[in-house]
Design a protein around this nucleic acid. Structure first.
Lengths: 339, 339
DNA sequence: CTGTTAGCGCATTCAC
DNA sequence: GTGAATGCGCTAACAG
């Protein structure tokens, strides 16, 4: 363990060592104003010798900007939050900005507490990352810093929200199945209370409609688990043995679907094509065949959110309302056989 | 989007509104010194009315402590980092501390860059979270703040490192298999270059030794994937059809093992028991049967790391060297059949 | 070119 | 009890 508190060297120390004034030292180190090359070098040398690290906090106090951003999430565990967080960290990390991470554990009280903490730290902006694509309560309009909502949109249309386009995702999935000649398509999804489940279904139906088709049987809803995928598919194949494709509401469900289809002796994708959702690599690429899926582009979503916060901080009008970001089809062996 | 920069209200505003001096306002709000109850209430009221949020930054500048901690990770994507991060955030979040999250993306340059940023933000301490349990380069001894290494231990024995006890994990896994009467046990693991793979194997061998047994065949190493688990197990069952248990180096591998075992018509756990590692819920509880696994207690590890940083900040001697934290067996259907 | 002065927002002496 | 003064570390005006 390092020796505690050797007391960090300050600009004053550097100035003294270089035998110049505080101001000159400051200018020399920041290339501000005109400083004689000789003295500039002397100051630099002194700073190096003393291992000087400028105090960003003091600088922020003066500038009125902390150069920090708060990331307020409700569910770190959730695997949707992480890519978004990465994208944001990525966009910020490139510059002079650092990220405060706060996990409210889905608790409103805790969230309010963290919000206060972030404000007292004088963050320049806040990104709120939800765990579902359902609407979440707004933090309010009277905050002293710009706020962007990612994944879970705010319920206040005056806020700026970025969320993946689940409707298009559903459409894309079906269009892909149609494009490989499938027409008897069933849908097994997760918890029907999720906006994600409903939006994807709506997109799917629109695509089928457009082709003059309809889902085989009713869409099956329960939970976002492999077990449900298996159970649902077993029942499905009994009632509708003639289906030639299943659109699964998540990759976990798709894994279950795959299992159940295989268990009946059918082949994937030859007899039944399967498409999942989320493009969760560990799951989608672990099965045989690997699972075609819809990627919500979460890392990009995080980057975009960060960019919007940047812009807002710089006074750029970033608009309002909920923006639906594009999703992407990732084709694997469960819909198109590989050599 | 909120109105930009209404300029946060300061203590001066509150003091003016309450018609007292700055000093009195400060005391009133912090219960410091003797303030007349009447004026105290007046100040409080003014603060409320103006929506005053004390500037934690300015306070930190004065106190010489920022009340922040840096979390330096090399791989946010990795699922081992997240629980640790949660544990740390948990331990810190309870108090007055906020966490700066930095992801170096496994790049040393980037890491150095982030380290400088954290120091310039005057964090009170740093937790370094690695992505593997292999040793990683030390940040050095001459840092002005305490550093604790989590998951990946530092290569400098003078640093304090917290890492899961993989050796005990391997032992635990085998002891469990022995306890359910298995004696012909094989081992399928991941990349042999990982310390985790070697440590778990060593623990497993120790337990077998102690029982006067040995692994069936050579341990099989390649990658931490389902595909490898399947391929390895197929080969394994051909060469050693009499095995009654497989210790898989990860839950992903265990999933593959399960598949391959089932494919030969054997039943799990009746014919072959399977135990995984990591207790990755999504994977371990998605299969049939669900997978018994070793949980590394990462969230606890994160909490401990945070606690150590706390202690070190408070001047408590937190010791040095690498500490191996206990792991836990989580029993599921792949080793003991459920009704 | 360099140094002096004045704060950023706050908590802490110390007089009154 | 209260308030004026001092300073945390730094930068932005100025004056020299």
């Amino acid at each position: 363990m390092a020796d505690p508190t050797p007391r960090a060297t300050t600009l004053r120390d550097v100035a003294a060592q270089a035998r110049v004034s505080l101001a000159t030292a400051s200018k020399a180190l920041n290339d501000r104003g005109d400083v004689a090359p000789a003295t500039r070098d002397r100051v630099r040398a002194a700073a190096d010798a003393l291992g000087f690290t400028p105090n960003h906090v003091a600088r922020g106090l003066l500038a009125g900007r902390s150069g920090t951003v708060g990331l307020l999430t409700s569910d770190l565990e959730g695997r949707f939050v992480i890519p978004i967080l990465m994208g944001a960290e990525d966009a910020f990390g490139a510059g002079q900005v650092n990220v405060f991470l706060c996990d409210a554990r889905g608790d409103a009280i805790r969230e309010q507490h963290h919000l206060q903490a972030l404000l007292s730290r004088r963050v320049d902006g806040i990104i709120v990352v939800g765990r579902q694509t359902d609407q979440r309560p707004s933090l309010g309009q009277d905050l002293p810093v710009p706020v962007v909502y990612a994944y879970a949109p705010s319920d206040d249309p005056h806020d700026l929200s970025l969320t993946p386009d689940n409707y298009s995702g559903g459409r894309l999935a079906i269009e892909h199945l149609l494009s490989i000649g499938r027409t008897r398509i069933a849908h097994v999804s997760g918890d029907p209370a999720y906006a994600a489940a409903q939006d994807r279904l709506a997109g799917a139906r629109a695509a089928l409609d457009h082709a003059g088709l309809a889902l085989v049987g009713d869409p099956m809803f329960a939970s976002w688990t492999e077990h449900w995928g298996r159970d649902a598919t077993r029942a499905l194949l009994e009632r509708h043995p003639d289906i030639d494709a299943v659109f699964a509401g998540s990759d976990q469900i798709a894994r279950g679907v795959l299992d159940a289809v295989h268990a009946t002796g059918r082949r994937v994708p030859d007899d039944v094509a399967v498409i999942g959702y989320d493009n969760w690599e560990a799951l989608a690429t672990g099965s045989t065949p690997e699972i075609t899926s819809i990627d919500a582009g979460l890392q990009n979503l995080g980057r975009q959110a960060a960019q919007r916060v940047f812009d807002a901080i710089d006074g750029v009008d970033t608009g309002e309302g909920t923006h639906h970001l594009p999703v992407r089809l990732v084709i694997r062996g469960s819909t198109i056989a590989r050599r």
